Simulated assay, not measured.
Amino acid sequence: MNANVPLMQTPSRAPVSAVVPCYRCTDTVGDAVASIAAQTLPPAEVLLVDDCSGDGTLETLHSLARAYPAGWIKVVALPVNSGPSRARNAGWEQATQEYVAFLDSDDSWAPRKLELQVKALLADPQIALISHRIRVRSRGLEPESLRKPIRTTIVGRRRLLLNNPFSTPSVVLRRDLPFRFNEKFRLVEDYLLWAQIAHSGYRCAKINQVLAYLHKPAFGAGGLSGDLDAMHRAGREVGNELQRMGLVSARERMFTRSVGKIRRARRHLVLWLRRLQSGDQLSP
């Protein structure tokens, strides 16, 4: 990236393409797009990618595009259902801005997300990926207040050996990075991409503020993330893939396997407690 090129193209827009993969999300995508439009520094464009939903989703996306300023929302329709990796890559391919941000169709952004991330990128143009904290909570609540001081911390590659510090709706990255989501993975595909970026020597950062919200638990709540064991199997495959690429050493891979086993046991315990609290019937 040329540091001499002005980051901001206009005073009212961020040089960001917001990519939203969409699959049978007629009930939630409107709120997701509204949270993008409510940014204090809105992105220059929004790409809504329909992953061949086969219901009324595509019509809903075109309706949303008409409800906002002409040309701001672009609808991309995939011919076959291929999963979130392909949908995000398709949006990334058509993005025109210097940076790409990701938001799932059932999540939302806090209003100052892009403002703070662009400010951090201006302060350190060498950052290739920047994220922030996220919160799991119900819909319809007011955004949390910022907690000062606002800090941006560099995240080293070794941090990613422990777990995934970058939730997908928190990430803004450079459009010109020579990586993409691996379309062979339908689970943990985001972690594989972030790890490729960090382990390849690119500068990654994280802001210490909650600037996005997940409206269902990160695991054990249905959908692709609902199968906890499948997620951990995918995590092992990601670790093996990083080792095959030469980005993680054999010793580091042994360490990540050990951490993964501990994390799996902890998540099963959390899921068991969640079901107990909700009154679900537990098997012996």
Rank of each mutant, 00 (worst) to 15 (best):
S278Q: 15
G220K: 01
C52A: 14
I197H: 07
W109D: 05
G223C: 05
R86I: 02
H62I: 04
S278K: 12
R88P: 01
L242M: 11
P149A: 07
R13C: 07
S138E: 15
F255D: 07
L58F: 00
R151C: 12
R175C: 06
D176L: 11
D104R: 07
V259Y: 07
F179V: 04
A195F: 08
V238K: 03
V46Y: 03
I262K: 10
V19D: 02
L7Q: 11
G222K: 04
V188D: 01
P111L: 08
P284T: 12
K148N: 12
H215I: 04
L78M: 15
I262P: 00
Y99M: 09
R133G: 04
A87R: 05
P143T: 08
R264K: 14
L64I: 15
D190E: 11
G91R: 00
E59G: 12
Y213N: 05
I262W: 03
R112G: 02
A70G: 10
L214N: 15
P178K: 10
D229S: 14
S63E: 12
A37H: 14
E183T: 06
V136N: 14
A18Y: 12
V188F: 03
S225K: 08
W72F: 07
L282N: 03
A38D: 12
S249H: 02
S258H: 13
A65E: 03
A87S: 13
F166C: 09
S225E: 01
R66A: 08
L192D: 09
I127W: 04
P111W: 01
G222H: 02
R139I: 03
S283L: 13
D50S: 11
R158S: 15
Q126P: 08
L122S: 14
L58W: 00
D107N: 06
G56K: 04
G54T: 03
D227P: 00
S249F: 04
K206F: 01
G140H: 09
S278N: 10
D227R: 05
I197P: 03
S167R: 06
S283I: 11
